[in-house]
Design a protein around this nucleic acid. Structure first.
Lengths: 201, 201
DNA sequence: CTGTGCATGTAACACGTTACATGATTTC
DNA sequence: GAAATCATGTAACGTGTTACATGCACAG
């Protein structure tokens, strides 16, 4: 439902190829969307059939030819319609939170090991994101750029980093909790059956 | 890939029907996973075929019969294998962040209206979540319950609320930014073409 | 008598992932 | 000589959503 509008949104400010778009999905845009080439290419073709975008072939030297897409008037209309739709609250899917939630089925040591691994990966990700923001925001002050898209982009990305930091803080906190309770759980049950998740409180 | 393990995880501590599981996906579990009945029922059937869970029919009075599923030894093994898999960093998909990111294609007024609508919905959601946590945590202190699952559940849910609060704070901040810049943008461009998202900084 | 809750499912469709296929150029 | 980058796609498969189908009990 939304890859379509992601493509239209990206093409609303610059002419791009499927490959270019993939770069954005792997970079800046990754904080709110992602996709892969084998989905992007057919979707672009579909958008062109619908008349929302238009392509032109560009020959290059030393590189393969590429197909650049541009948004049409109809495409802009479609995008604006979508942008005006009532916003929806995100439905979360987080495998690691799920793994953690069910980690009472592992030993405390195993659970802690998983948390440690995640903590390291998460720290690395945050470092990369901060580096990326620094690199791209360096120029924002030097050049003019009080453009809407740029201001919003900076805010969205900064917020994304904050989100990731909060996540990291929680993992650390979870680790402390498990360490503290380790001795208590070492002797106790591993298979007590509850009636329901919420009922058991 | 993970609905399977979500079902196994839920069935690892209590016997449940597809309908019961759906309740959890709509309640507590919603902070990290969700699904709908028309996916859950066939998936449970598949898990039973694989020998990871076992069902029994239970007759009820005044209510339709139900099929309760229990995890098997093989199912527990499968679950533990999955729980020990290296944790993966979540790949975010957030339509509202995307709408906001592309909101330079709307007027400042329209963008602000979208943010206001989201802010209200988000506040309502947080209120509900806090109520839910209060209701369920009330009993945690009165009864024993230093069980692993419960401690982790409380931590996961509290963290989920913090996440949503951070999101709310960002929306508020975004609104202030737009208000401030409104006068500047009123006169300026709405269609300046950039070379690329990151290049434009 | 209408809607909500309880309870289980199927069918069609849309969306997303992985593997496969091609081929030139550049970097290690 | 091998791997990465640029560039575009198809095919098969797996996951997720929406619509449909059934039927009893209870509350308003």
């Amino acid at each position: 439902m939304s890859l379509k509008h992601g493509l239209l949104g990206l093409l609303s400010t610059w002419e791009a190829s499927g490959y270019d778009i993939k770069q954005e999905f792997d970079g800046f845009v990754s904080v709110f969307w992602h996709s892969n080439l084998s989905q992007i290419y057919p979707e672009l073709a579909k958008l062109e059939t619908n008349g929302w975008i238009q392509s032109r072939l560009v020959q290059q030297v030393g590189k393969p030819d590429k197909k650049l897409y541009q948004i049409t008037a109809a495409g802009k209309e479609e995008l604006e319609t979508w942008l005006s739709q009532p916003p929806e609250l995100p439905k979360r899917k987080d495998t690691f939170l799920m793994q953690t939630f069910f980690s009472d089925q592992l030993s405390t040591d195993e659970a802690l090991f998983q948390l440690q691994t995640f903590e390291r990966k998460q720290r690395e990700k945050i470092d990369e994101m901060e580096k990326f923001l620094d690199d791209t925001l360096q120029g924002i002050r030097t050049r003019q750029a009080i453009k809407k898209r740029i201001v919003v982009a900076a805010s969205v990305y900064t917020h994304a980093i904050e989100q990731e930091k909060l996540h990291l803080a929680w993992v650390k906190n979870m680790m402390v909790t498990l360490e503290k309770a380790r001795s208590i759980w070492m002797m106790t049950e591993r298979s007590s059956r509850l009636k329901s998740l919420t009922d058991c409180f």
